[in-house]
Write a protein that binds this DNA or RNA. Sequence first.
DNA 1: AATGAATGAGACTTCATTCAT
DNA 2: GATGAATGAAGTCTCATTCAT
Lengths: 196, 196, 196, 196
Amino acid sequence: MSPRTEAQNREIRQESMQKIMDAASRLIAQKGYEATSIAEIAREAGVSKGLLYNYFSSKQDLLEKMVLSAMSQADDVMERLVADDPRQTLENMIRELFRQLHERSEHIRLMMELTFKIDRFDFVRKMASDRYQFYIKFIEDLFHKIGIPDPANEARMLAALCDGIGVQYTVLKGVYSIDQLEEFLVNKYCKKDQQT
Amino acid sequence: MSPRTEAQNREIRQESMQKIMDAASRLIAQKGYEATSIAEIAREAGVSKGLLYNYFSSKQDLLEKMVLSAMSQADDVMERLVADDPRQTLENMIRELFRQLHERSEHIRLMMELTFKIDRFDFVRKMASDRYQFYIKFIEDLFHKIGIPDPANEARMLAALCDGIGVQYTVLKGVYSIDQLEEFLVNKYCKKDQQT
Amino acid sequence: MSPRTEAQNREIRQESMQKIMDAASRLIAQKGYEATSIAEIAREAGVSKGLLYNYFSSKQDLLEKMVLSAMSQADDVMERLVADDPRQTLENMIRELFRQLHERSEHIRLMMELTFKIDRFDFVRKMASDRYQFYIKFIEDLFHKIGIPDPANEARMLAALCDGIGVQYTVLKGVYSIDQLEEFLVNKYCKKDQQT
Amino acid sequence: MSPRTEAQNREIRQESMQKIMDAASRLIAQKGYEATSIAEIAREAGVSKGLLYNYFSSKQDLLEKMVLSAMSQADDVMERLVADDPRQTLENMIRELFRQLHERSEHIRLMMELTFKIDRFDFVRKMASDRYQFYIKFIEDLFHKIGIPDPANEARMLAALCDGIGVQYTVLKGVYSIDQLEEFLVNKYCKKDQQT
DNA sequence: AATGAATGAGACTTCATTCAT
DNA sequence: GATGAATGAAGTCTCATTCAT
């Protein structure tokens, strides 16, 4: 066999890492971080435990890299939501939240799981804190542009509201009709003639 | 010497159980359920592991009894908040939420931790689901009496908002000024001349 | 209250000890020595753990006293079986074995359980060994009187046979018809015109 | 370096499992199932506790696999004992029993130990019951061919006898001369001019 | 005589991690 | 790059035993 080229190796690495992170996402979202074992993740990913440790130096390192990756993906999504009209941006954001609740509820579940590891893993603390502040600031700007009074508090409220909907959807799944809420929010926050 | 009376024993047991549950609350709120070991709880409570198992048949049973106890306490608090004027009731509830965030943030932390054990422990699922629905209905009634339009969705929003504030306070603790938010909410929801 | 007399105390002690030993017999026969806890025995006997330790210095001590008591009872039974005619004595012994299998199979079960503790408890080893030899010798004498050739080996065979029937009855309980075997043995060993 | 081949791994696993089962056999035969700890078995086998759990999912599973293996070995031995002449088959069986008592008394001890776990472990109940009935039937056939009257009861007697000799050998080890008994039994059951 | 709260050693089991191949 | 056998620390839980009352 001829040795693999550098590029081939890189690609193989990328693929394996992604497989592992996807498997970990699924399992951790379902069962929680502690209840998910490395052995299980490796099995679900279809690789050996040894290989997993080639890519991730520890279980925590895997978690860190997963969070980074998830954040980066979230940023990509965010960028696409920004429109010229701040009201439209807001609507896009709200509709995206509900889309994710519908289509990737497990992903939301994972983020919640992680949020509450905040006191155990410093990297989560820093990252989550930064992002929360960033998003709140971002919404505040939108509100400011729209001309809503007290945009700072309104922004914190909307951010909290989104989180809370995530929590309640997770808890009440099945009894919690999201669709009405989506229209309600869009009407409330994004229509010209409405005032919060 | 004669053995202890039944009443004496009951008191001793009560005390020990409470010591254990308090210790468990502190630790689980701080580090999470899985990361808190029985040995640690016993040490923090100042009792032996064996005694813990005299009162709680398993780690999960301890959690269950803690939840039951917390729920019962929460019910007691709730009852005291109800006033003749629905606006006043709402204000009491909101102020109580913030008081707890201030004074018993660890307790909030614990409830959050538990909420996300929902897929692991059936007893949490049932209990949490029932309570969520009860509180949402309760708020809906208040809104209805006050005459707010679309009280159903407004209630779900307020409930989510409260949860979300809990989450964000937990995450942003220290950077998150609660006091402004409290007045903001009271003004928004409980003053006669305000409309959501 | 007037203090109890010495005699009353002795009687109370006797009674309590017997209750405990009976409870222990039932449970150990059912579940085995290791699987039966002191707490269970005390509960079944209707006394406290503390009292149990007043009478028996340890779990092993309880077992020892139970064995002693069982042996003593067995001796009493044996005495009543001896008849003038050695053939009749043999028949009595065989019929007694089957009566016990029928009516006190749990007792047989307990003895089996104990027999196999022989390598862990020295007192069992010594006692069991002595008794086995005594009974074998006793049967040998009977065979000798009856005039059966090679009574030594025949006695060892009959003794083994009785043990084996106990084992098989325990194992095959429900599929193992004892009654035919009883007549078969009586015919074989105790009738004048029969020869082993 | 390339990973081990599947065949290499299989062999490594086989070896480790065998080491563990052998160690467990020795210890359980000596001290009993409950009194033998997993830690001890691992130490005796020269492996870690963890490895033991790679191969056996629990202490009971280890016992089950040991029983299965022992049964399978016993079957192999049985097959070799069958001869054309039923008397010869009987003699082979009896001589094999005594050979095992001499050379593998620990193995007999283990089987006894297991037999009395019958009420604790369902798999033992089924397996033991089936085998007992099979062997009794097998002996009955031999007796029938030889022309012994009442072969059914005689078979049950011989089977019980074998068990009983096992028990007594275990109990009286050292004081129990087996050799005479062997010749005695062979003479009694397998010689043409003898009648039971 | 009698109770049962309390202890702590030790049992079984899980799992992140290492390393020879 | 890839495997999985092997380890051992740590976790949950049980239970014989002690002792203040």
